[in-house]
Design a protein around this nucleic acid. Structure first.
Lengths: 194, 194
DNA sequence: TGTACATCAGTGAACGCGCGTTCACTGATGTAC
DNA sequence: TGTACATCAGTGAACGCGCGTTCACTGATGTAC
């Protein structure tokens, strides 16, 4: 109970961020207006500016939060594996699964690229995430590991968007991704799970 | 000279579309407002609505035009080759080269996906373009040819964006794409060109 | 315990702005007689 | 050749709207004495 009191100063900020995620999930990044966020949160417009200097900082905060969540999930899934094709594959699957749980990711991690509103820190986060598979590609002997990692990111994002639109996993798309990675086995070794 | 007179009825419409491409190239899809377009074209705001029922129809017309241009270039580059890895590769290179010539493509073919403003006909065009490599993947024996073609599109678009940002070809990225296609040769057979 | 003051999250009316769209009007061009 | 009329691309002021941001204010809470 004391925790609730201690957390009180951050409660409204948290409420705004959660409302922002909800709006982003439903309306996309372009629909993520201060008006909509405060309406969902049920607070006055001025309250928004008590917690965030401007809209950009708010979007940036959401971006940071979701990148961190996805990054943790991917890292956890890859940790037990050595760099290589299998680690890439596990990371990609973890990424796709976590995306399916958080529809706001579509707006925050994927749409964000195209808006003119790409903050420097958002670009940095994207670049860092896109380079996550570099060690694995190096271990696999790819000469252009950096570029390969970015293209992997593009493919994974494409699948994520399509899976979010479909509302479910798309095994065919995942199989195609796996084949691009050089694992030409046609059997689905992940078929047992779920 | 008579041609100029005959074309007169469409001249302003053409001017608006060219101005739209220019604005899209500089400001992106979100910055492609009726105000900006008519300002660049040097016509009154009302003139816009003489030629287009609304902004959406205008964006759709631009989208159609650019998709057609890129489609022709890709088809021309692929025509002499049988479906297969080589045809995919030639098509992708043609796509990337034509993108570098038309900066507006970034907004019109790539950003368009994320906006909420995706017309039905724009979605159809995108889907059709994304399926262009299906026969080649089938010929290569891929079981998920449709998904593979879409992922190829995602990778090619990613490279196109990066090349447009860099203002030049990025050979490392193109090499990585080629390797994803299964051509593990490290030599660049296209090195002689240009 | 009671009173005066400081702090600060929260409020909501008001602002200027750019947006997409409308519409009564203009004026050049073509046609009819 | 001259006059009356029809057509229609082009005009630009005006509209309502949602946007991001500001700011004087409120009122609950904590602190000092």
């Amino acid at each position: 109970m004391t925790q609730v009191i201690i957390d009180a100063p951050h409660r409204t900020r948290e409420l705004l961020l959660q409302s922002g995620a909800q709006v982003a999930a439903g309306e996309g990044l372009a629909g993520l207006s201060v008006n909509r966020v405060v309406a969902v949160a049920g607070v006055a417009k001025g309250t928004f500016y008590v917690h965030f200097p401007d809209r950009e900082a708010f979007v940036d905060a959401l971006h940071e939060r979701f990148h961190a969540q996805v990054g943790e999930a991917v890292a956890a899934a890859s940790a037990a594996t050595e760099p290589g094709a299998e680690q890439i594959w596990r990371g990609a699957e973890a990424y796709l699964d976590v995306c399916l749980e958080y529809p706001a990711i579509k707006a925050l991690a994927l749409e964000v690229r195209t808006e003119g509103a790409l903050t420097a820190s958002m670009a940095r986060r994207h670049e860092r995430a896109g380079a996550a598979a570099v060690p694995s590609f190096r271990a696999m002997g790819w000469p252009d590991a950096r570029a390969a990692s970015q293209l992997l990111g593009a493919m994974t994002a494409e699948i994520a968007i399509r899976e979010l639109d479909a509302g479910r996993r798309l095994p065919g798309a995942r199989r195609a991704l796996r084949r691009f990675l050089g694992a030409n086995a046609t059997d689905d070794s992940n078929g047992g799970g779920r």
